[in-house]
């Protein structure tokens, strides 16, 4: 059994790696498709005038060699986590991204957990009170949040809670100038996390709530629910013991698929709240036209999604006994 699971995971991992390989190749050709000299494209706005740096890039990526050789060099570099150097920060792209990774993981992780818990809860309540006022209220709220642009919501939230009410910080991950340690530091980061995580999470809360509600209602029409009712079970217990678990399966699938969107959303939230993660890094790279860094962030965030999907797959086959390994 456990060997089967390992084999399954291995199979999935191989698939994920293949996806990443394709993305790497895609990145490679994208740089070449961009207008202008690839070295200048890679170097970014700031580095494009530094002839020494450009030469260094040309050598590192073999830019004066034939295309297939360049591809080989590129893939080989990627395999060694070598994505080149950013001119402005004078740092390897990979290190820079990894430096920012924890902040993004914290933000997206918090938003993910928050939205999943809140969304599923709201969806369950709405389904349990189908066609009554809590259902309508939740449905309307979900619709509104589903329609609201994330970045705008983030701005309005910071306007309200930071500027007017002054309850929460609207900027960065830690208080500037303070050097907290231990629990104080955790608390400080926590306070800074509230607004970004909440605004990023709200959109996905809406997504999960709608999905859970639909799934619950559909599941509650299945035959085995009738069986449970015929046992003389209380409706609330039927909902909890029989409907919920079955209804959550599609939500798990969706949650995995949404991982990519969560990272996309992080670009916007991190930009608004100056959260020092890879999303913010992406925005900076855009600003400085540092395409090598941009593609690096893109690649790493894709890798995160692959990993996320792998985790979802594993969770799925643990939750659903019908999945044959």
């Amino acid at each position: 059994m456990s060997i089967k699971i390992l084999l399954y995971i291995a199979g999935r991992a191989v698939k994920g790696l293949l996806v990443l390989l394709v993305i790497a190749v895609f990145n490679f050709f994208l740089i070449r498709a961009a207008p202008g000299d690839p070295a200048q494209v890679m170097a970014g706005e700031a580095g494009a005038t530094d002839e020494v740096f450009l030469q260094q890039l040309r050598e590192q990526f073999g830019l004066d060699q034939p295309l297939y050789y360049q591809l080989w060099v590129y893939i080989n570099n990627m395999l060694h986590f070598d994505m080149g150097i950013t001119y402005r920060q004078q740092m390897p792209v990979f290190d820079l991204i990894m430096d920012r990774m924890p902040a993004t993981l914290l933000l997206t992780g918090a938003a993910f957990v928050l939205s999943l818990l809140l969304g599923v809860l709201a969806g369950v309540v709405a389904a349990a009170k189908h066609r009554k006022w809590p259902d309508s209220a939740i449905t309307v709220a979900a619709l509104v949040f589903y329609a609201t642009p994330l970045f705008w919501l983030a701005m309005m939230a910071s306007l309200l809670f930071s500027v007017y009410l002054d309850w929460l910080p609207s900027f960065g991950m830690q208080t500037v100038g303070e050097d907290f340690a231990g629990w104080d530091k955790v608390r400080d980061i926590g306070i800074h996390l509230v607004l970004p995580a909440a605004t990023l999470g709200l959109f996905f809360t809406a997504v999960y709530a709608r999905m859970t509600r639909t799934s619950m209602i559909e599941t509650s029409r299945l035959d085995f629910v009738k069986t449970a009712k015929a046992k003389g079970m209380k409706p609330s217990r039927v909902l909890y013991r029989h409907v919920l678990r079955n209804a959550l399966l599609p939500v798990v699938t969706l949650a995995g698929l949404q991982a990519g969107q969560l990272i996309g959303g992080a670009v916007l939230t991190e930009t608004v709240f100056a959260w020092p993660g890879i999303g913010r890094l992406m925005f900076d790279a855009l600003f400085q036209r540092d395409y090598n860094l941009l593609l690096g962030v893109f690649f790493i965030s894709s890798a995160m999604v692959v990993l996320f999907n792998l985790i979802t797959d594993v969770i799925y086959c643990v939750v659903d006994p019908r999945i044959e390994l």
């Binding site: 085995f224 009738k226 009712k229 015929a230 046992k231 003389g232 029989h242 079955n246 939750v319 006994p321």
Partner: peptide
């Protein structure tokens, strides 16, 4: 409810879907 499944019980047409798959 106290009678259902206790004093009166029922079986259905579709055995393939009448049981909770999980």
């Amino acid at each position: 409810r106290a009678l259902r499944g206790n004093r009166i019980s029922m079986i259905f047409q579709e055995p393939m879907t009448a049981l909770n798959p999980l």
